[in-house]
Simulated assay, not measured.
Amino acid sequence: MDKLILDLMKDGKDINEILSMPYHFLIEILRDKNNPKQEKSLIAAALNRGLTGVKDKLRTVCSEIKENLSVFVAVIDL
């Protein structure tokens, strides 16, 4: 459950918004993450995994940009 909350925060959700979510809603999100959809074809599965990889990479790049931007803003404020 902790990992789910941390993942939601990394995706940009506010902690107060997460804490106000109904418990059953969080359980549904957790269940969906742990039970991936079964694809009907190998091509669809490969495409889905490829898009997930792109999403993960974009999330990493976005966090790096935010980190670098905060350093840049701190330098400008001096």
Rank of each mutant, 00 (worst) to 15 (best):
T60P: 03
K57N: 07
L19I: 12
S70N: 13
A74L: 07
T60E: 14
P36I: 01
L51Y: 09
L26S: 03
L30P: 01
E28K: 13
R49V: 01
S70T: 11
I65C: 03
A45R: 05
L8K: 01
A74T: 06
D32C: 05
V75L: 11
V73R: 08
I15W: 03
N35W: 04
I27H: 02
L51W: 06
E39L: 05
S63D: 12
D7S: 09
M21N: 04
N16M: 08
L4P: 01
I76R: 10
L4T: 03
V54F: 02
I15C: 01
I65E: 04
C62Y: 13
S70Y: 03
K10C: 06
L58T: 06
N68P: 00
C62I: 04
L69A: 11
N48F: 04
I43S: 10
K10A: 13
E17T: 09
I65V: 15
S20A: 12
L19P: 00
L51H: 09
M1V: 11
A74E: 12
V54Q: 08
K3R: 14
M1E: 10
L47S: 07
R59A: 14
I29S: 03
L4F: 04
L78D: 15
D77K: 13
L58M: 12
N35E: 10
M9P: 02
G53Q: 06
I76A: 12
M9H: 08
I5H: 02
I65N: 07
V61L: 13
T60Q: 11
M9V: 11
F25D: 12
I18V: 14
V73H: 05
I65P: 03
E64H: 09
I29K: 03
S41I: 04
L4Q: 01
K13E: 10
I29Q: 05
I5P: 01
V54I: 14
I65S: 00
L42M: 13
V71G: 06
M1Y: 08
T52R: 13
A45M: 04
E39H: 15
K3G: 05
K40N: 14
E28C: 02
A46S: 08
S63M: 15
F72L: 14
L78Y: 10
M9T: 10
I65K: 05
I18W: 03
A46R: 08
C62P: 01
N16L: 08
L4Y: 01
V61R: 04
M21Q: 07
L8C: 00
M9S: 09
S41E: 01
E67V: 01
K10R: 13
S20C: 01
R49E: 15
K55D: 15
L26A: 03
K66V: 02
F25V: 14
G50W: 03
I29F: 02
D11W: 04
N16I: 06
V61E: 12
